[in-house]
Simulated assay, not measured.
Amino acid sequence: MDNKSVKFFSQTNINYQHREPIDISTNSDEKALKHLFKIALESRNFEITQLVQRNNFFMIFQGVIFMGLIQSSHSVPIVSFMICVVGLVTSFFQSRMAAGAKFWQEY
């Protein structure tokens, strides 16, 4: 494979829609490393933004569950118990989602 035909594609915006080709053979190593570092920072920022959006979704869902628990006024104990179980399961999934996001930020 010829060095002149090798192209490196980078993602330059947060939603990964636009790619600009970088010709590695004409760029210096330092410039290529700076560009790769820029891509890594953009990817990390994208993952943090997604973490915040997912976390907001879970918090809204947990708020609705909590309001349902308050509104039930404990008239039927099994309903209150089931609402608490759903809240615990939701909290578990939220913590696993946050752990996965942390993994990708570190990666």
Rank of each mutant, 00 (worst) to 15 (best):
F8Y: 12
Q94R: 10
T12I: 04
S91E: 12
S25Y: 12
F93N: 06
I22A: 03
Q62D: 13
S25D: 07
E106S: 08
T12F: 01
A98P: 01
F8I: 14
Y107F: 11
I70W: 09
L51C: 07
S75P: 07
L33V: 07
S43I: 04
L88F: 13
F61I: 09
F103C: 04
K31H: 03
F61N: 10
N27A: 00
R44F: 04
L41N: 14
T12W: 03
Q53E: 10
P21L: 01
G100E: 09
Q17L: 07
L41Q: 14
F92Q: 07
Q94T: 00
G100L: 07
A101Q: 09
Q94V: 06
N3S: 11
G87F: 12
S72G: 05
L88S: 02
M82W: 06
F66Y: 15
L51K: 13
S80V: 02
S80L: 00
Q50F: 05
Y107T: 07
S73Q: 15
I22M: 03
S95W: 05
M67K: 15
T90D: 14
H74P: 08
K102M: 06
K34W: 03
A40N: 12
N15I: 10
E42K: 14
F58R: 00
G68D: 14
F57W: 07
N15K: 03
N56R: 11
V85A: 01
Q50E: 10
F103D: 08
L33E: 12
C84Y: 13
G87R: 06
S25T: 04
E20D: 03
V6N: 15
Y16T: 05
F93I: 02
S10H: 02
P21R: 06
T12M: 05
I78G: 04
I83A: 05
Y107E: 10
N56F: 07
M97Y: 00
G63W: 02
I83M: 10
G63F: 01
L33N: 11
V89F: 11
K102A: 03
V64L: 13
R54H: 12
N45W: 06
S91P: 07
K4A: 10
I39P: 11
Q71C: 13
P21S: 00
I24G: 02
V85W: 07
N45C: 08
F57Q: 09
G87Y: 13
P77G: 01
I65A: 10
M1R: 09
L69G: 08
Q62G: 06
Q50A: 04
E47I: 06
N15R: 03
I39L: 12
C84I: 11
S91K: 10
